[in-house]
Design a protein around this nucleic acid. Structure first.
Lengths: 155, 155
DNA sequence: GATAGGATCTCCAGTAACTAGAGCTTCAAG
DNA sequence: CTTGAAGCTCTAGTTACTGGAGATCCTATC
């Protein structure tokens, strides 16, 4: 029976994140001490590790919910686990491709910058001129690829 | 002088997004008709295209703000534009690397799945067992790579 | 000039996946 | 029994949008 801090340390998760997972129902409500503090059993450690591993693989929480549901019912067919994983692989490959072309444009842009002032900066110019863009000219609609939680690693 | 809908169509942006950019100060407040509707001049079309192109390249809005600031002052040195772009390139390469190892684990996982029930599903098992994980065993802290706005393309 | 329709307005709320802080209480070691 | 770390709840903020309600406006047709 460990406290939330120990659980956090064991699984490489932040404490508020654990409470958040509980709040959204990914982790069951644990036992509490008489003083209302959470105490976790071994099964919860495993469950949280499962969740974290899935997150590292880029699965959204909703998929993880489905995956947990499956692993809670070992008698069921694993087809849907398989298809979730396959879908995720497709996603990952899509992102890989788009990042690769993105890298190409970025590095081409940077190579061409000779310093000097903004007036003749290739970076700004390239950015302003969509015609130089490799990536999907032919109308890609929908949201732009982004990685928001991923800017500054903590100290 | 075009309305917000035309601007949206010309730049491949959604109407609420344009209003959002205005709200956060990326786009200046445009002229209005007597009936309070926005009317945009050509310069704004270019500016929005610049923003969108940057977004496609994965720049966060704050960087775009800095980039726009530079392109508004062509006399300044382009060093900071260059360093923003370089930083972005580093980010992109980091994400590429992590996605690549992620893909490897996913496809290995899927390959090993022989169908059947969850009880002997390699996917679930692999997910549950972090030991099979290639990626950073040695404590990577910080948020997990994610692509939130990027799940379901609009109809 | 009236009217019908689509476009636009503002405001509010919600999304994903957390993260941070305030102000208080509890636990465990000495 | 004290003290300091760890925990509690609650609220609000982050990023980059997206969606809807309910009202108003613009323009084309009759």
């Amino acid at each position: 029976m460990l406290g939330i801090g120990r659980l956090a340390a064991e699984t490489g998760t932040k404490v508020p994140t654990i409470r958040y997972y509980e709040e959204i129902g990914l982790l069951p409500e644990p036992e509490r001490t008489s003083g209302n503090q959470r105490r976790y059993a071994a099964a919860q450690v495993d469950r949280l590790r499962f969740i974290r591993h899935c997150r590292e693989l880029g699965f959204p929480l909703n998929d993880i919910r489905a995956l947990l549901d499956l692993s809670d019912n070992p008698g069921r067919s694993c087809d849907s686990a398989d298809s979730i994983a396959r879908h995720q692989l497709v996603e990952v490959e899509r992102r890989l491709a788009s990042l690769a072309s993105l890298r190409q444009e970025l590095s081409r842009m940077i190579e061409n910058c000779a310093g000097g002032t903004v007036a003749d900066c290739r970076v700004i110019e390239t950015l302003a001129d969509h015609a130089n863009c490799i990536s999907d000219r032919h109308g890609h609609q929908g949201p732009v690829t982004q990685v928001p939680g991923d800017q500054a690693p903590p100290p």
